[in-house]
């Protein structure tokens, strides 16, 4: 029984049992729901007006920013189209709210109030306003359990924005820390580097902020640098989360010939160390297939001419 759960064999059973116990979850959450509801309905008119105007300002600001972003994205898609790489165009999100429950004390998991009924699925990326939170672990009908980035068994494929260096960030069991255990001592990484999702794990869409490097220690005697990063997402404070659904505009085609140079990721100096490392690290994360970043074979965008003009 226990061993069974190494693999994902018992997923349906898990879902069924999870759904079966969800009334208990709702019961526990109910008092908080009520108090939220009361505090919302009983808020004073003045406070509401203030909040309203504040939100309107914010909205204006965001809209302005969004215009620029739209333009950038269009340009990006055009460029990516020239390079003929896959690009996630549309990401629809579902807003989910945190249910206030204490789950397993030995794991970093939280529960959200959206389940398979709302389109959630296992492995779905979860974000908050600041960055990546984690991924859906188990879904029930109306609830889902999310494994946080910082769970010791979680890993996420990341990329340094400054130079495109790719690696994997593993959870540490501490809500404020992620570890980057697979970087050699001579890797080009500095304190303050921004890590974003690289999209290579096939779970998380590309380009979402994950963490900021807070500590880099290079010990001459050790093969790997000790790199610690702090997640952007407020893992223990956010209440609203986003469940992201990505639709890949152009699926990878495994039949195409092996790639020459990854067109979108040319930096030669960073790729070889990463490749050399990746096979060695996969055994560490047995339970989570999501973390095993494939060596480039099937991953790189199909080489060749522009089979597709406008995405």
């Amino acid at each position: 029984m226990t061993l069974d759960h190494r693999d994902r064999l018992t997923e349906p059973v898990r879902e069924a049992v999870h759904t079966a116990v969800s009334p208990v979850h709702f019961t526990v959450n109910l008092p908080f729901e009520i108090s939220d509801y009361l505090s919302e309905t009983l808020a004073t008119r003045r406070a509401l007006q203030q909040e309203n105007s504040r939100l309107r300002d914010q909205q204006l600001l965001n809209a302005a920013r969004l215009q620029r972003l739209d333009e950038l994205e269009r340009e990006n898609i055009r460029l990516q189209g020239l390079l003929d790489s896959s690009y996630e165009v549309e990401e629809s999100v579902v807003i989910a709210e945190l249910m206030r429950l204490d789950l397993n004390p030995h794991r970093h998991v939280i529960q959200l109030d959206k389940g398979s009924r709302d389109g959630a699925f296992a492995g779905q990326p979860v974000l908050d306003a600041h960055g990546v939170v984690g991924q859906v672990d188990t879904v029930g009908r109306g609830t889902s359990v999310v494994r946080l980035l910082t769970d010791p068994s979680h890993g996420i494929a990341v990329q340094v924005t400054r130079n495109g260096l790719r690696t994997v960030a593993m959870g540490s069991g501490n809500l404020r820390k992620l570890e980057l255990p697979h970087l050699p001592n001579n890797a080009d990484i500095e304190v303050g580097d921004r890590l974003v999702t690289s999209g290579l794990d096939d779970r998380f869409p590309r380009g979402y902020p994950v963490a900021e490097v807070t500590e880099v220690r290079r010990e001459p005697g050790l093969p790997f640098a000790r790199v610690i990063a702090r997640p952007y997402a407020e893992l223990d404070r956010s209440r609203e989360m986003l469940l992201v659904r990505t639709t890949r505009e152009q699926a990878e085609d495994p039949e195409l010939p092996a790639p020459q140079l990854p067109a979108e990721q040319p930096p030669e100096d960073t790729v070889p160390p990463a490749e050399g490392l990746l096979p060695g690290m996969t055994p560490q994360d047995r339970g989570t297939p999501d973390t095993s970043e494939q060596p480039d074979a099937g991953r790189a965008p199909p080489a060749g001419g522009a089979t597709e003009g406008q995405p």
């Binding site: 029984m1 069974d4 898990r14 049992v17 999870h18 079966a20 116990v21 789950l103 998991v109 529960q111």
Partner: peptide
């Protein structure tokens, strides 16, 4: 125990055992 595993999103069967 199985129920509690599901409840806590733990490894199914751990508390059951």
């Amino acid at each position: 125990g199985l129920g509690q595993d599901a409840l806590q999103a733990g490894l199914l069967g751990q508390q059951a055992l």
